[in-house]
Design a protein around this nucleic acid. Sequence first.
DNA 1: CGCGTAGTTGATGAAAATCAAATGTGGTGG
DNA 2: CCACCACATTTGATTTTCATCAACTACGCG
Lengths: 234, 234
Amino acid sequence: VQPAVPAFSSRLLSYGHDPDTSRRIERLGTTRIYARGRTLFNEGDDAANVYEIVRGMVRLYRVLPDGRRQIMGFLSDGDLVGVAVAGRYVYSAETITAVSARFYARAKFDRMVDEVPGFARRLLMLASDELRAAQEQMLLLGRKSASEKVATFLLALAARQADDRSACDEVVLPMTRTDIADYLGLTIETVSRALRRLKCEGVIALLSTSRVEILDAGRLEEIAAGEQEASDPA
Amino acid sequence: VQPAVPAFSSRLLSYGHDPDTSRRIERLGTTRIYARGRTLFNEGDDAANVYEIVRGMVRLYRVLPDGRRQIMGFLSDGDLVGVAVAGRYVYSAETITAVSARFYARAKFDRMVDEVPGFARRLLMLASDELRAAQEQMLLLGRKSASEKVATFLLALAARQADDRSACDEVVLPMTRTDIADYLGLTIETVSRALRRLKCEGVIALLSTSRVEILDAGRLEEIAAGEQEASDPA
DNA sequence: CGCGTAGTTGATGAAAATCAAATGTGGTGG
DNA sequence: CCACCACATTTGATTTTCATCAACTACGCG
């Protein structure tokens, strides 16, 4: 029952019921490597391309005039960006690790939506997942406490990483504390303190700055779900 | 540049490039009237139907175990609910006014997605709008102050109502303060105080509990966008 | 081996939540 | 039509949580 981190989560393009279509789709895209900290596009840019992240991680975000930033999601292997957007991008996208991404010219992509049977339907399913994740995130941003937010975040990351690696309970945080804070609607200090609190309660261990071990997954899930939070049954 | 209130905003079903298809779609649905305060479905229910709101307003929400509630959006005339969902509904839907709604059995609806040309594509566009609105809401929930939230909310309502009525600057709030608070991630007291602050600054007038007049739309937009907020240039 | 950036920790402050009345308001029945 | 009731809203006092400000520490890299 773990929600994905909001993003166009998918393995769409390399997926296909029939190999011909898959190959056709593949041929339409161009793969490119980006260094860490590069901009794929900015909010307001003409939405010229659809991107698929092949490897690495990307953040999507918007900023308010005075610099406050909200990260909408982190994208990683297999995720799509920009499918939804017609006209102009409504957020910016930057790499937070080295990234290999394939991109598709919008015109070609749109033609595929019309021509390839089932393609639009499949994109619709992806958008639905995305939407569900976005709503999960609204619940988090609007109603969860700092600890609950961080707990939820760790579990979501863990769930995503469980796909790849073996099901060990070590979670890697490829993004900075600033990114985490801007994703959870907190400050870096509050994120740090929430992690410490979880550590003190024995729920997690901090292996290093960017690695966390989940010691008590059940308890972490309780906290994330907002079951009771404070653990002081004195 | 006014974001819609997150919802499956659409005039989809009654819309059609060709009248035959429209009629066919129409025939598939059943219209029903709901009193105020009724439940269309609950989080976790089998997602048996797709709903189109014909008239009235509906709230979509999720609740945490201890009762904290987050409203994901308010639906009104022409909006769709449940398109995205396969399996089980991930939120609850309740009427906040008397509502006339048409509903479609999922199986039939899904068949249409496959059979009616362009239908999936059109739903995809709706989902995209929805997604954009959800991201706008994440920015609001994560990074805006109480006054900014309320200002944004009033403008979104005004924009939606501008479609129907003439472009007068009176906004009707069909939902309670509790609903507004649960939508903006605030408490009712804070919503009330934010409205008062806007009134004191001369940006709005409170005509009655449920009616607001926008006196200074430009300033309200500045506040909503987070340009500076406090107005105390001594 | 520092140097710079990222992260942690602590002290203080501010915004919003909570608690507690008081005030409106709409609807119902007398 | 009016009085009353239940409930929604406003307003005020206080508390809590998180943000801000300020060192301090750790880590990675040239």
